[in-house]
Each structure stands twice: as C-alpha cells, then as structure tokens.
Design a protein around this nucleic acid. Structure first.
Length: 568
RNA sequence: CGGGGUAUAGCGCAGCCUGGUAGCGCAACUGCUUUGGGAGCAGUGGGUCGGGAGUUCGAAUCUCUCUACCCCGACCA
C-alpha cells in the first residue's frame, strides 16, 4: 500500500475528550472517529487491526472445534420475555420497533437467539456436544459510555455458546475454551491473566475472566505472589484474619465521641487502632433491613454482599431517613449492640473481641464490646474486599493486586436458559432433558484498545507483530526528487509485497521529520528508511519500533533480513 | 438517573460580561524556497455561531426552551 492510495489522516494534537491513552492514540492515528456517544466509525487503518484480531480469534475458535455462524443483531422482544431477562438488563436494552409497531431489541447478547435456534435444530443427544460461535456487532445502552472503544455502546464481540447432555461434557468444552482464549491472547501478543469471576446477571455456576494487564484497567485483580490463585477483586475470597475469638478482657463501656463520624475519626479520638473497631452499614434487605458489619479498616465488597439471599439485589445502601428509623441515629454512630435488624458479620469480625462500635446514639460509641455477652449476629459471611498482603485463599502465598482490562469471560451456565426456553433433547433412555449450556464472550473491539494500552510509548503505538496494520514501513527520504531513492524504495516495495509481506510505502511529499513522527505514532513494527546517504554505500537503514535503534543493512540482504525479523 | 460543565471553520480555542453583521492557531488548497526529526514566506477556500422561540432598529452576545456532547457519581457479561 502506498500512503497516497490509502486514507491516512493523523493528528499532532491530543483530542480534548479522550481520557485514556488508547483512545487518544486511536483518534490521533485516525483508526477511529466518533459518530456519537459510544459510537465509533472504524477507518481503514483501524479496520486492518480489528480484522487481524478477528481472524486470530476465528482461527483459534475453529481449531477448538467451534462452528461459526451469524445471528441477527435485531431480536424480537418475545424471545426475551421467555427468559425474563428484560428486567435484568433494564435500560441497557435498546428497544426499537418496526413499521407495524412490533417490538425488538438490538441484541446486547445472544443467549436467547442461539437457544431458540438450538431448540429447533437439536433433538437428540447424538447431536451433542456442539459449540456455535459468531462475531457480531452488539449494542448495550451503557449509562455512561467512555474511554473510546474500551467502553462504547456499539461494539463487536465474539460470542460462543455450547450445548451438552451432561455437566461433565460442559466442563470439557469449558476447558477447551479456556485453552482457546489463552491461545488467542498469546497470539495477539498481550500479557494477560485468567481469574475467577463473579457470574453476575448472566447467571450460572463457574466463570473466569481473561484480563489484559494494564495500569488503566477498570478491574482490580488479586493474585497469589507464589501460587496459582487469581481472582477478580469482586470475587476474591477474603479469609478470616483471626483464627479464633479471644476471650473478653474489657468491660463494656459507653463513651462520648462528639462529632466523630468516621472510623478514622473515632479510632484516633479513642486512641485505638482501626483494626479494633467495627463499622456497620445498613442496606436494603429482601425482607427487612440488613446490617453488614466489617472491621474498621476493611471495605465492603458490594458484589459479594449483593449476592447474599437476605440482601436485595442490586445492593442499595439505606438513606438517611431509613437509617434513622432502623438504628435511631445517623450513619456515623450505628453499632451492633441492640440493633434490631438482620445482622451479617464478616468472617474476621466474627472472631473479634473487645472491639469498638457505634452506640446507635448520636455522638456515642461502645468500647470493650464482645459477641454473645453484649451483642449477637445472625450470619457470618465473606462480605469484604480482600487486601494486598493478606494470605491467599488457597493457602499458597500472599495476595498482590494488578489492574486489568476484561477482554474475555467464560461461563458454565448450566440449564438456566435451556429450561426457561424449553431447549431439550432426548437422552439415551429416550427421556426429554434440558441441555447444559456454556457461553464464552470475547470483546473484539475492546481487544484492540487493550493492545494499545499495553503497548505504547510517548511517541505513539507499538503494535504487537501479529496485529499491526502493516508489518513494514518504507520511508523514503526525498522520494519526489531523488530518482535513485524513488527507484530503491519502489523496488523494495515490490519485492516485499511479492513475498506476501504487508508493506506501506510513504510516497507523500512531506518532510522527513514529519514522516518519521507519523510512523512512530502509527507504530508499524519494522521501518526501512531509504535515503541518499545510505544508498552511497548501497545500504538502507532499519529500525524496529520497540527500540528505534537504527542499523544500516546492505540492499542485498535487507529482504532476507526483514523476512527473518518478521518470522521471529 | 443525580450533580457539574460545554456547544463559534475539519481540530483546539477567543469573542459573549458591556448587543452593531465573526476572529486566532493548527489542518486543508495554490505558488516559491527548503529537504534526515512535526519547515519558511506569500496567498486562497471554508462558519444557518447546536436547534427553535422571544426581547430589540439590530442577537454569537440578553431571555426562555429543546437537543447533543463531556466530566464526577451511582450502574455495568
């Protein structure tokens, strides 16, 4: 490709509304342009990258035995009524209607469509297991789209759905998908981590997320420094930090703590460590208000709390008036003694003794509080965030934290959808049985942004070799005037192209500095600079985008040199 | 959805307070010079000032209203 035949529009200045580096660089290179909130056009340059990611995904999915198909983006509302997920998805669903006023949704996901397809196509256990996938545009009306294609409303996702007679069969395919995802991200060339995950609104039993490691990642992932354990912070088990409860040594005492409303303030006012205090949070329950009790220095894990049967989902903290009605005081003085609601304590809290808590009375706290003697609780649950430095839940090593960008999520769904939609097969006994189901998503557009987040410097993008829009950039100095530069550049271009290498030759009439800066921004891995200076010695100059060290290479060997570099 | 903000040329912005018929930088186009790190000079094109209504002799500017977009929060396979 010659730049004059291509569409190359770069910008020197960082766009105003782009917060994260990948968004900035995608705009500056001209890969994408914004059409509206969370809506992006992929220009030819961006599409080249997107299609490479797509192709790697396709090849690995095919290799795993999955079968590609394509489902409609627009889905009849009736299908969603069958599974009752309209409520779950709520405002994220883009509702549309046709000229006859029939209701549709623009698909945010395709469990309903595939299950409908399968219940009509698959009747016998002999047709199982089977794994269908598609690469399709989806739309989720995010409350707040941001970060360019990282969290856009319209996006491309690869989604796969597998169907099985038994859970064992499901587990086998799930493992295959785990392997396929590992292969995909390795081939794309990104550093990633697979972690245990909460299955959220989509339901099901086991699930794992694949995260590309990047400081700008929206998710916190916890992992053992010496073991294999890794989990999303949402899911990461927080062990009890106290093995057993010590016997009470202090007497219960009510103390005045005027104006001390936070754990920080109370601990410093009473001259105690935050670890000897507890905090009590009131949330909406399924039947009555629920108190969630944590050690003072711990933070509530809203996902874990929201998953408790006694807590309303989604989790909602009580407002000021409700707190007053339940505890008789404001939020700064709630405590567990004489608190009349359902009390759920964290595992660590259950083993605390001689602790400090609010007195359910404005400006007062208790010290020397002890369970059983002074207060009781109803349930012990893991409801806090795990913290860096505490023991890994599997007992191997201690926990560390990293930021990650979720690019893939695999689930063992079980029969939630197949039962709801009556997707059954006859088993060997001739009995009707709901199929077991798995689903496996991977964000294609997001993967491109994640790749940039992980691979850039202050000059621009540094594309991993397998997804770079072009492998080699030929940058001729003074192409317009110097006949031998033009001749050398054209010749190399023709030769590399003949070898099947994707080359871009910059034949624009621009100054050298401009050209070089442009290609640093674009991040093409291999750059060949052709100028009169080196041609005097029958050489050209080579630079790799990663280190930008230049070396002169003779014109005779540059072809084989590049071939070697590209294969390596 | 709650709070805050913005909307003027492709991009980034000034002008608005104090009403008088729109400007700067970058980009684009033409010419000349320059040619190994985002060139210089000269010139050119491009704007229903987000939409609608109102006040006024006159509105980018004042008032009302609608819309879009951005930020923070909550939300989030």
């Amino acid at each position: 490709m010659r730049t004059t035949d291509f569409h190359l529009v770069t910008r020197k200045e960082t766009p105003q509304d782009a917060e994260i580096i990948s968004h900035q660089l995608m705009i500056r290179t001209g890969m994408i342009r914004k059409l509206g909130a969370g809506l992006y056009t992929w220009a030819p340059l961006g599409l080249r990258v997107l299609q490479k990611v797509e192709q790697i995904i396709r090849e690995e999915m095919n290799a795993s035995g999955a079968l590609e198909m394509l489902m409609p983006a627009v889905q009849p509302k009736e299908l969603w009524e069958e599974t009752g997920r309209i409520e779950d998805f709520g405002g994220q669903l883009l509702a549309i209607h046709d000229r006859a006023q029939r209701d549709y949704f623009f698909g945010p996901t395709h469990e309903e469509v595939i299950t409908d397809f399968v219940r009509n196509e698959i009747n016998s256990y002999k047709q199982l297991p089977i794994n269908f996938y598609q690469i399709q545009t989806k739309f989720r009306d995010e409350i707040r789209p941001r970060f360019g294609v990282m969290r856009s409303r319209e996006f491309i996702m690869k989604d796969a759905y597998s169907f099985h007679l038994t859970q064992d069969s499901l587990a086998v395919t799930y493992q295959k998908m785990h392997q396929a995802y590992t292969n995909i991200i390795n081939r794309i060339g990104l550093e990633f981590r697979c972690v245990l995950a909460d299955s959220g609104a989509i339901g099901g039993s086991g699930s794992q997320e694949f995260h590309v490691i990047a400081d700008s990642g929206e998710d916190a992932i916890m992992y053992s420094d010496t073991g294999d354990y890794a989990a999303n912070l949402e899911k990461c088990e927080a062990v009890s930090l106290l093995n057993e409860r010590a016997a009470p040594t202090a007497a219960l005492q009510k103390v005045a703590t005027p104006e001390q409303k936070t754990i920080e303030a109370v601990a410093s006012f009473l001259q105690v460590d935050k670890t000897s205090t507890v905090k009590t949070l009131l949330v909406e329950g399924t039947e009555q208000p629920v108190a969630l009790v944590l050690r003072g220095d711990h933070t509530l894990n809203e996902v874990k709390a929201g998953n408790l049967a006694v807590v309303a989902s989604p989790l909602r903290m009580l407002n000021e008036a409700e707190i007053k009605a339940t505890a008789g005081c404001d939020a700064g003085s709630i405590g567990v003694k004489d608190l009349h609601c359902l009390i759920v304590v964290d595992q660590t809290v259950a083993n605390m003794s001689d602790f400090v808590c609010g007195a359910n009375e404005e400006g007062h706290h208790y010290t020397g509080v002890n369970w059983d003697r002074d207060a009781t609780y109803d349930l012990v649950k893991d409801i806090r965030d795990a913290q860096v430095g505490e023991p890994s839940p599997d007992g191997v090593g201690t926990l560390q934290m990293a930021r990650g960008i979720e690019v893939g999520h695999i689930f063992q769904l079980g029969n939630k959808y197949s039962k709801a939609m009556n997707a059954v097969v006859l088993n060997e006994q001739g009995k009707s049985q709901a199929m077991e189901m798995g689903c496996y998503g991977m964000g294609v557009t997001r993967m491109v942004a994640a790749a940039i987040e992980q691979n850039h410097d202050d000059k621009g993008i540094i594309w991993p070799a397998n997804i770079a829009p072009f492998s080699v950039a030929i940058l001729p100095m003074n192409y317009q005037k110097s006949q031998r530069v033009k001749q050398a550049a054209d010749q190399l271009y023709a030769e590399l192209t003949a070898l099947g290498i994707e080359v871009i030759l910059d034949d624009r009439k621009v100054r050298p500095g401009f050209m070089m800066s442009d290609f640093e921004l674009l991040g093409i891995p291999h750059q060949v600079i052709i100028g009169d200076r080196a041609l005097d010695n029958d050489e050209v100059e080579y630079r790799h985008r990663v280190d930008m060290q230049s070396q002169n290479i003779s014109r005779d060997t540059i072809k084989s040199f590049l071939s070697g570099q590209i294969k390596a």
